[in-house]
Structures are given as C-alpha cells and as structure tokens.
Simulated assay, not measured.
Amino acid sequence: MWRSAADQRAYDDARRRVRALRGFYMHAMLYVAVNAILIAVNLLTAPPRPWAGAPMAGWGMALAAHGILVWSRVGLLGRRWEERKIAEYMARDQVRTLSTEKQLVEAQMRLLQAQIEPHFLFNTLANVVSLIEPAPRKATLMLEHFIAYLRASLAASRATQGTVAQEATLLRDYLALIKIRMGDRLQYLIDVDPALNPVPLAPMLLQPVVENAIRHGLEPKIEGGRLTVRLARRGHRMLATIEDDGMGFRPSAGAGVGLSNLRDRLAVLYDGEAQVRIEERSPGTAVLIDIPLPRQAGTGDAA
C-alpha cells in the first residue's frame, strides 16, 4: 500500500512502539509463568524451598525497570499520553474526512468519465459520414479508432483505478482519431517508460490535459503542430509531460476549470504529494504532472 514519506515515518514510529510493548508483555508473561511454576513446586514439595526467592525478586525489579522504560518511551504517562490520545482521535477524524472526500471525488470523476462530450462525439460521427463516399478506407479506420476509444472510455468510467498502460492506450486511440480529422496538421508522440506500464494511475487523468492541448493549442493554429506526451520515472516519482508547440496557454473557461479539477483530483488521490505546473515555451506550452510512485514501483534507480 502506498504511503507518503510523513505517513511512513509515523507508521515506523508506531511500529517501534508496538514492538516495545509486545516485548514487555512477553517478558511479563514469562515472569508470571516461571513464578507460577516455582510456587507449584514449593507447594508440592516438603519442606518448601525458598531458594528461588532472591533470583525472582531480582528478576521482578528488572521487569519493573523494563516496564518503566517501555511505558515512558511509548508515551503513556502524563501529558505525553494525553497529547498522543488527542492526536490519535484527531487523526481518525481526519482519515474519515479524507475518505469521504476521496469517495466524493471518485464518484464525480466516474460521472464525468461516463459522459462523452457531445461536441467531440458529433464531430467524429460527422467526419465518418463525410468520408464514407470519397474515402471509405479512411472512414473505416476512423470508425475503428472511435470504437476503440469508446470502449476504453467506458472501461475507465467503470474503474476506480487503472494503469499507465491503459491511459496510454486511451490517448493513442484519441490522438489517432484527431489525426484522421486534422491530417498532416497534427504530429504526435507518446513516449512511456515500459517499466511504468503496470503502475497504478487514476483513469482518464491525462486525457483532459491532452484534449486541452489539442483544442486550445493546436487546432486554432493554421499549420497545426506537434504534441508530445512523455511519462518518465524520476527517482521515486513519475513525471508526465504534455507538451505542444501550438498557440500557447490561454486559459479559457473550459481549460481553466479542467486544470483546476485536475489539481483538486490529484490533491485528494495523492494526499497533496502530487504537483501540477504549466510552463510557457517558445513556441507552445507544457503541462507537467509530478506524481509519487507506489512504494513497490518506486524502487530502483532513476530513469
């Protein structure tokens, strides 16, 4: 299970405290068991043998010292205990709140994912119809890509978790459709580190950014341009870069809301550990999304 650095430190500290408590309890149980055996031996034999009294007394004092050390370290004495319990209750409330927010965001995203924009749907079908007579092979190819895109979108709309490979497939089908419509005005490249293919990724996380780049950056440009989507590992993080050499970033209502929703979604999904930034380039714009990798996927050298 993925944890942030702060969560991991808290988890490791709690684990050390639990281990210390477990060690003390095992020590105490062993002491009680040995005492019980010695008492039984003394009761069953005559005359009683007090030879174990001194060692057991010494052991009892050592156990008491062990208990004091453990309980003081764990923090169950005085003000430290109160503060720790208060923090524990507050953390539980925060976890419940975050869980509710995450469920709400996921429900909203599933609703958005299930809705294909009418503008895109109607334009694609109109293009297919217009190509049937003059270019039937091109119309067939466009329809095939459209069906593949719809299938991938439907699967994403029903899933709460996807993978990098699934997102890349969705982007390829989407851009193949746009390529048929724009022709030579659109050139694109999707470059994904193969090691990242099985990495978990929220469904349709990158597709809205790519759509914004096409709609606001490349389509308005008479000669079109080039779009590059690159996903690479950077240590224990993944950097997704969506770059175009189009008209530049002019946040319209749709683009601004889309990026705002992306930031909100990332903040909930990755507990504030993900970052989004926009870089103006000459020409064009790049959107960079920096996401922490799950612990099991974050091992190894940086790419």
Rank of each mutant, 00 (worst) to 15 (best):
residue 275 Q to I: 01
residue 65 A to H: 01
residue 97 T to V: 05
residue 199 V to C: 13
residue 84 R to I: 02
residue 235 G to K: 13
residue 79 R to Q: 15
residue 78 G to F: 15
residue 246 G to T: 01
residue 144 E to N: 10
residue 53 G to R: 04
residue 26 M to K: 11
residue 182 M to L: 15
residue 141 L to N: 04
residue 86 I to L: 11
residue 284 G to F: 03
residue 212 N to L: 06
residue 213 A to S: 15
residue 143 L to G: 00
residue 240 A to W: 00
residue 259 L to P: 07
residue 165 A to V: 04
residue 130 S to Q: 13
residue 86 I to N: 08
residue 167 E to W: 02
residue 2 W to Q: 14
residue 281 R to P: 05
residue 9 R to V: 12
residue 298 G to T: 04
residue 97 T to Y: 13
residue 97 T to K: 13
residue 74 V to C: 11
residue 282 S to C: 08
residue 145 H to T: 02
residue 267 A to E: 06
residue 195 A to N: 02
residue 219 E to L: 14
residue 224 G to S: 11
residue 186 L to V: 12
residue 235 G to F: 14
residue 195 A to F: 03
residue 113 Q to C: 06
residue 189 L to C: 11
residue 297 A to T: 03
residue 55 P to E: 09
residue 97 T to Q: 15
residue 104 L to N: 09
residue 140 T to C: 04
residue 116 I to D: 09
residue 35 N to E: 11
residue 298 G to R: 05
residue 66 H to V: 07
residue 23 G to E: 12
residue 46 A to Y: 14
residue 293 L to A: 08
residue 223 E to C: 05
residue 295 R to T: 13
residue 79 R to P: 07
residue 64 A to D: 07
residue 71 W to Q: 06
residue 21 L to G: 06
residue 108 Q to I: 10
residue 41 V to T: 10
residue 302 A to W: 09
